[in-house]
Amino acid sequence: MKFAYYPGCVAQESGKELDLATRWVCRALGIELVEFPSFSCCGSGFVDEANEVLNVAINARNLAIAERAGLNLLTICSTCQGMLTLANHRMADPKVRARVDGALKPLGIEYRGTVRVTHLLRVLVEEVGLPAIRAKVRRPLAGLKVGAFYGCHLLRPTDEMGGEGGGDGEEPHSFEDLLAAIGADPVYYRGRVMCCGFPIQFVKEATANRIAGHQIQDAKSHGADAMATPCPLCHITLDAYQNKAEKAVGARLDMPVFHLPQLVGLALGATPEELGLPRHLVPTEPALARVRPSGA
């Protein structure tokens, strides 16, 4: 199993622990990650707001890099997943395609549209498969109640993102299935498919913080000891800005928030340091202390 690895900006900088954990888990599961130093930022949804065609073009360039290498592309961020998938969809519109080609062709770049964009979550569930993961679990996360938090762009618009259950209105469950496979207890709550508030963190901080606070409270009131997300932008909001969310909702939250591969890594035997857990703003130790020792 081999992919063009698209880490995205955050995992290369302030979210480095996500990159660390991804590499650890992929090594353990035999997923080969091929790096391309010429990959650019996906635009994070903001470039799309300012200039749609430009956003498609920079992502078509990213996709063309993977296409030339004959690889499908692996993302570790819901927003990167959304933006690169969107580029694939928009390129099907002949008018958009003509403008993008007009900008790329003079640079000797052509994107034929053959790259499949997939997120680590889907690779683990659909390609590695839950039985194979279960077989490699060395330290089941038994007793740990985890609220999955998907991140909007991994899921919606459902018809474009290739939603789980074929977009027939079925609720997503791949993340919870994965959590169960590594021994944790998935917690279902309304907020798990909602927005973390990140896109308006710079527009109206108080509203963004309140939205984040509500999702964390929702997970907490359903019994979650921790949350986990496949999106580093959600992670910034839920972890690094949790103190602000607490102020916005007027309650202590103390909610440890894991990146998806960190929990998988823990179950497969990695140490907290190997997964960058000490880099979190909200300490993760209380959650780890909830894991029942094996055999208990």
Binding site: C9, S40, A50, N51, F202
Partner: peptide, 21 residues
């Protein structure tokens, strides 16, 4: 603020290709 952020983001990846936080 919202539009300044969108335009600022667009400009911030122009120089290095990655986001400058």
């Amino acid at each position: 603020p919202g539009s300044r952020h969108a335009v600022g983001f667009k400009e911030s990846i122009r120089g290095a290709g990655l986001l400058n936080e």
